[in-house]
Design a protein around this nucleic acid. Structure first.
Lengths: 231, 231
DNA sequence: TCTATATTGTGAAAAATATCAGAGGAGGTA
DNA sequence: TACCTCCTCTGATATTTTTCACAATATAGA
């Protein structure tokens, strides 16, 4: 673990590369160049080569990259070779949509437990996922050895729930609430703030029109980077 | 419009500041310092001061910032002083969750029209929002002068829908599909890729443990910056 | 085998972002 | 008024990220 010092910006693009490599593999492609990849993921080809180079020499000059080998490499790098169980805290509208989202499809990630306060939800099974009482959260998290949680609860109890997650041994939190929760430094928090996103988008279309932007480029930006947190 | 050259990183943090300022205002606070703000939004105080300074001298030395004045300033800057109508393309699980999300609450943003292909949805009203046939999309977008759309359709038709959105005059797209759509350069696309987010989070907790990270800092990262796109 | 073409890997430069640190006020108190 | 404390604003610096541009080298074809 930890070849160390993969820039964060690079790390955030890895899933993007991985997904497209899987697509190419399923389409029967054997090789791909950084230029082709660039078109699909909308990341400059030099950036792609630089990103890959942090992991060593993965390609061949004059040839490109071997799709299958690269896909397998990223699969390992992204821990896709083993199943990651995730807990869903708060089974409301958004929570239920995420249950239906099926992260599993092509990904070794699944929501394996839900938690809520509502009596009518507790004890039921949604999309194959059992919903527990939020009071059992700490012990269930420990018992099921879950180390990633998705937080979709009302803002008012976001911090409280974050504290419980920490107590339950979770190491990563995907926070959909607008609250920036306080957690110990070793815990990773990624914020996905939908209202923020929308406001930023609106700000951009009104003030940036199309300044800069490379002539040809059709889209851009840091995928998600923004939605986030913890560096 | 366009005081020009507000760094993108700064722009992405504005909604965060704005939200907290509203909270302070409602709590009756009259002034706030960058240090206090920093605690709440988890952004370094020097970064906050720098961000604010791009808009001129908004604070007073030795005093801090006037909450109400600053809130109003950001409200204008973020176009919160007028209502922004948004279209929802694809009323599936995620789409419906977003309809329930109520962006409007405290924000001048609302989903004003939904589009789908399903006969059982077309013509109905969800959360007060009428759902139209996707075939009427271009004309409805034009008629209703909508310039922001949320894309929550199956990947297979993401590009096709993006093309229609462009035809309908939309200037900003919040893309929830994993496809990086191709659009003319003047159209802004922000990608919110949930699977990506989760994979990145898992990568981080496995490889970054807690390297760097300032001693005291409890959380961090670029809020959203990452979830995104178009620069 | 030779040559033309494709495409990586990477120094070096540029651009964007974040942080430090201190001069300069502002407000409050006696 | 004098003085102390708080806190902004900003030049300078550090860090991170992106991009340029080209030597190196693999493949394909003649």
């Amino acid at each position: 673990m930890a070849e160390k010092k993969i820039p964060k910006a690079t790390a955030r693009r890895l899933p993007l590369y991985y997904r497209y490599l899987r697509f190419l593999y399923e389409a029967g492609k054997e090789r791909v160049s950084s230029a082709k990849l660039s078109e699909a993921v909308k990341v400059d080809s030099a950036t792609i080569r630089r990103d890959f180079s942090y992991f060593g020499a993965l390609g061949k000059r004059g040839y490109g990259y071997d799709v299958e080998a690269l896909m397998n490499f990223f699969s390992k790098t992204l821990n896709q070779d083993r199943l990651t169980n995730v807990a869903l805290i708060g089974v409301g509208n958004l929570g239920q949509a995420l249950l239906n989202y099926n992260f599993r499809r092509n990904n070794n990630i699944r929501i394996s437990a839900g938690f809520d306060v509502k009596d009518e939800l507790i004890g039921t099974i949604h999309q194959g996922v059992p919903i527990y009482d939020i009071n059992e959260m700490v012990e269930q998290l420990e018992m099921q050895q879950i180390d990633v949680a998705i937080l979709t609860v009302p803002s008012e109890i976001a911090q409280e729930m974050a504290d419980k997650l920490v107590k339950g041994g979770v190491r990563g939190i995907m926070n959909f609430t607008p609250i920036r929760v306080t957690v110990p430094q070793e815990i990773r928090v990624h914020n996905v703030d939908l209202t923020n996103e929308l406001q930023t988008l609106i700000y951009f279309i009104n003030y940036y029109q199309d300044f800069d932007k490379k002539e040809e480029k059709e889209t851009s930006d840091n995928p998600l980077n923004d939605l986030f947190y913890n560096e």
